[in-house]
């Protein structure tokens, strides 16, 4: 658990009380921050802590908040750090991380389509993964929609 502790300490030192870090098991770290500093934390992790790889981004809904989970890895000791960014459903603004790691683009597009998170600065391109003609304000993975309700969309034509 030596490396885990090291990363934990340097993250806590840099962001003090704005971050909660927990080493739950071997090679797995879980951290929690507010969405407005998640970009800075990821930049710090990539620049200073030798993180190199973004495995994926998971979106979840928890009460009145969205939680966006960045699964990041440092090649040196293969620690998978899950950084949780919390943002309110009422104002779901999130800064893109494609400037730090371009591979994030498809995962961020997924957040836009599936949850309706407003990713600021996302490069233009095709939507993913919903079909053409799917309404822009219906987001399948929101908890207030059931499968039956979703089956109605897209309404025009087959």
């Amino acid at each position: 658990m030596k490396n885990e502790e090291k990363i934990k300490q340097s993250l806590e030192k840099q962001f003090s009380d704005k971050i909660e870090v927990e080493a739950r098991s071997k090679q797995k770290l879980w951290a929690k921050v507010d969405a407005n500093i998640s970009h800075d934390v990821i930049k710090y992790m990539f620049d200073e802590l030798k993180f190199q790889y973004l495995a994926t981004i998971t979106g979840t809904e928890e009460g009145d908040n969205f939680e966006v989970l960045y699964h990041l890895q440092a090649d040196e000791h293969s620690i998978l750090c899950t950084l949780r960014a919390v943002l309110p459903i009422k104002k779901p603004d999130l800064k893109t991380i494609t400037d730090i790691i371009p591979g994030a683009i498809w995962y961020e597009r997924e957040l836009v389509d599936m949850f309706g998170i407003n990713v600021i600065g996302l490069p233009k391109g095709n939507r993913y993964p919903l079909p053409d003609g799917w309404p822009k304000d219906v987001h399948p993975l929101r908890k207030n929609l059931t499968q039956e309700e979703l089956s109605k969309y897209p309404k025009e034509g087959k």
């Binding site: 498809w106 599936m114 391109g125 095709n126 939507r127 993913y128 993964p129 919903l130 079909p131 399948p140 993975l141 499968q147 979703l150």
Partner: peptide, 12 residues
């Protein structure tokens, strides 16, 4: 690229 042609909604 345009992806998502086989999007079935497995996660939901």
């Amino acid at each position: 690229l345009r992806l998502g042609y086989n999007h079935r909604g497995v996660e939901k």
